[in-house]
Deep mutational scan, measured.
Amino acid sequence: TSIVNVSSSLNVRSSASTSSKVIGSLSGNTKVTIVGEEGAFYKIEYKGSHGYVAKEYI
């Protein structure tokens, strides 16, 4: 489990790309479970499925 480190919110994306669809967002200090990594993104558990967040904010 890791913590989201942002002051406002962090986009959760459908794939490991800044141009991919935003499927949701997480607020600062939210706990997330990392299940993998791809480039500059972590794959996380998100709403019963998976999403991707930028590593620099975790």
Rank of each mutant, 00 (worst) to 15 (best):
T1D: 11
T1A: 13
T1I: 14
T1N: 11
T1M: 10
S2I: 15
S2K: 11
S2N: 11
S2M: 15
S2T: 14
S2V: 15
S2Q: 12
I3C: 15
I3G: 10
I3Q: 09
I3M: 11
I3W: 11
I3V: 12
V4Q: 08
V4F: 05
V4N: 08
V4S: 08
V4A: 10
V4K: 07
V4P: 07
N5F: 07
N5M: 13
N5D: 08
N5I: 15
N5W: 08
N5C: 15
V6A: 09
V6I: 13
V6C: 15
V6G: 10
V6Q: 08
V6E: 07
V6F: 06
V6S: 12
S7Q: 12
S7K: 12
S7G: 13
S7L: 12
S7N: 11
S7T: 13
S8Q: 12
S8K: 13
S8W: 13
S8M: 13
S8L: 11
S9Q: 11
S9A: 12
S9Y: 11
S9W: 12
S9P: 13
L10G: 06
L10E: 04
L10F: 10
L10Y: 08
L10R: 05
N11K: 15
N11V: 15
N11H: 14
N11R: 13
N11G: 07
N11I: 15
V12D: 01
V12I: 09
V12Q: 00
V12Y: 01
V12F: 02
R13N: 07
R13A: 03
S14A: 15
S14M: 13
S14H: 10
S14L: 13
S15N: 08
S15L: 09
S15A: 13
S15W: 07
A16L: 03
A16F: 03
S17C: 09
S17E: 07
S17A: 07
S17Q: 06
S17R: 06
S17D: 11
T18S: 13
T18N: 14
T18K: 13
T18V: 12
T18L: 14
S19G: 10
S19R: 11
S20H: 04
S20G: 13
S20Q: 02
S20N: 02
K21C: 11
K21P: 15
K21T: 12
K21M: 12
K21Q: 11
V22K: 05
V22W: 05
V22R: 05
V22F: 06
V22M: 06
V22N: 03
I23V: 06
I23C: 05
I23R: 02
I23E: 01
G24V: 04
G24C: 06
S25N: 10
S25D: 05
S25P: 04
S25W: 15
S25I: 15
L26F: 05
L26M: 06
S27H: 11
S27P: 15
S27T: 11
S27E: 13
S27V: 11
S27Q: 13
S27G: 09
G28C: 14
G28Q: 12
G28N: 13
N29L: 12
N29A: 09
N29M: 12
T30Y: 08
T30A: 12
T30K: 06
T30H: 07
T30W: 08
K31G: 06
K31I: 14
K31Q: 12
K31F: 13
V32W: 05
V32M: 06
V32G: 01
V32A: 04
V32C: 05
V32L: 08
V32S: 01
V32F: 08
V32Y: 06
T33A: 07
T33K: 12
I34E: 00
I34G: 00
I34R: 01
I34K: 02
I34D: 01
I34P: 02
I34M: 03
V35R: 04
V35S: 04
V35T: 06
V35A: 04
G36W: 04
G36I: 02
G36K: 04
G36C: 07
G36H: 04
E37P: 02
E37C: 11
E37I: 08
E37Q: 08
E37N: 05
E38C: 13
E38T: 06
E38M: 07
E38D: 09
E38S: 07
E38G: 03
E38V: 09
G39F: 04
G39K: 05
G39N: 06
A40L: 10
A40E: 14
A40Q: 11
F41A: 02
F41Y: 08
F41N: 01
F41V: 01
F41W: 13
Y42N: 01
Y42E: 00
Y42I: 04
Y42C: 05
Y42T: 01
Y42V: 05
K43Y: 05
K43V: 10
I44C: 02
I44G: 00
I44D: 00
I44F: 05
I44V: 05
E45G: 04
E45N: 07
E45T: 08
E45C: 14
E45P: 04
E45A: 09
Y46G: 00
Y46L: 03
Y46T: 01
Y46A: 00
Y46S: 00
Y46M: 03
Y46E: 01
Y46W: 12
K47P: 02
K47W: 06
K47D: 09
G48Y: 05
G48I: 03
G48V: 03
G48K: 05
S49K: 10
S49N: 08
H50P: 05
H50A: 06
H50D: 05
G51R: 02
G51L: 02
G51I: 02
G51K: 01
Y52S: 00
Y52L: 01
Y52T: 00
Y52H: 00
Y52Q: 00
Y52V: 00
V53G: 01
V53N: 00
V53S: 00
V53K: 00
V53H: 02
A54Q: 14
A54C: 14
K55W: 03
K55F: 03
K55P: 00
K55H: 03
E56C: 15
E56Q: 11
E56L: 10
E56D: 08
E56P: 05
E56R: 13
E56S: 09
E56A: 12
Y57F: 13
Y57M: 10
Y57H: 12
Y57K: 08
Y57R: 07
Y57G: 12
I58T: 05
I58Q: 03
I58E: 03
I58G: 03
I58S: 04
